[in-house]
């Protein structure tokens, strides 16, 4: 299981409101690692994540998960969105939110089975939130909210986990708890990709890194990626030429790719 290719991003170029955010991103990620997606603000980290999950359409390139298109392997993939991306005033209990992890195309229109409910409880126990199962989500602290999201993701029993800034705005105890859960997943051979903006903690958290700034700076084991040359390239001087070009493209409504370009072998992004 370990070191088989979990994720392949091939020549991915993507734009947000016509402004190119990712240029020709190309890398492969082996399974069984804790992988940090790093880069400064606006470097396209979240856009990369959204493209991997097909939540937005790329201008070119494709993504393969375990060598297949996303739709064939959806059940092996789990997503933890940014905590602030949802309304925590939504009328639901902790249990109900974690149960959403068991909603699948297979049980459409049907109620959850008792085996699903068991998995929900087990996930809550893993993140230390079982005691809060009936609590309203509006009453949770930031750290507890994040634990609920992680529990929902665990309930999906996936092989590859994609998390958007799970360490933002959580207390130290939650940070440690999340980290130990994630290491546990890695030790089981799962692949965990995490969008992370804090360089200070990155080296300690991850064993693999993807360093971005609109283009791919480096991807590989952290020892190979986390060095001053790469970091200066990512965080130091702006890529003036590339960003100027991007602005022109957005302003003048140029197509980013000529119509017949689309490199969509197998089309992972339709």
């Amino acid at each position: 299981m370990k070191n088989q290719t979990a994720l392949e991003v091939h020549n991915l170029t993507a734009s947000y409101q016509r402004k190119p955010v990712l240029w020709e991103i190309d890398f492969k990620v082996p399974s069984g690692h804790l992988i940090g997606i790093l880069g400064p603000n606006g470097s396209g980290k979240t856009t990369l994540l959204r493209n991997i999950m097909n939540l937005m359409e790329a201008d070119s390139g494709y993504v393969k998960i375990f060598g297949k298109d996303l739709d064939e392997v959806r059940s092996r993939l789990s997503y933890v969105p940014q905590r602030e991306s949802v309304d925590w005033n939504f009328p639901a209990s902790v249990r109900e939110v974690v149960e959403m992890g068991r909603y699948r195309p297979g049980n459409l229109l049907r109620r959850l089975k008792s085996s699903d409910k068991q998995k929900v409880k087990a996930s809550l126990e893993k993140v230390g939130m079982l005691a809060y199962a009936d609590r309203q989500i509006s009453e949770l602290s930031g750290g507890q909210q994040q634990r609920v999201f992680i529990a929902r993701s665990l309930a999906q029993e996936a092989d590859i986990y994609l998390m958007d800034e799970p360490f933002v705005g959580v207390d130290a105890a939650t940070e440690e708890a999340i980290l130990s859960i994630l290491s546990g997943l890695r030790d089981e051979g799962k692949t965990v990709l995490i969008v992370h903006h804090d360089l200070q903690s990155a080296y300690q958290y991850f064993d693999w890194m993807i360093l971005l700034n609109t283009r791919l700076i480096a991807a590989g084991p952290k020892e190979a990626v986390f060095n001053s040359t790469h970091l200066r390239e990512a965080y130091g001087g702006k890529l003036n030429l590339l960003s100027k070009l991007g602005e022109i493209i957005a302003r003048e409504q140029f197509p980013l790719r000529e119509p017949d370009f689309k490199e969509k072998e197998g089309s992972g992004d339709e």
Partner: peptide
């Protein structure tokens, strides 16, 4: 509650 999550879970 969370349409992106629903989409990634494969729900229609």
């Amino acid at each position: 509650f969370n349409p992106d999550f629903a989409a990634v879970s494969g729900l229609p």
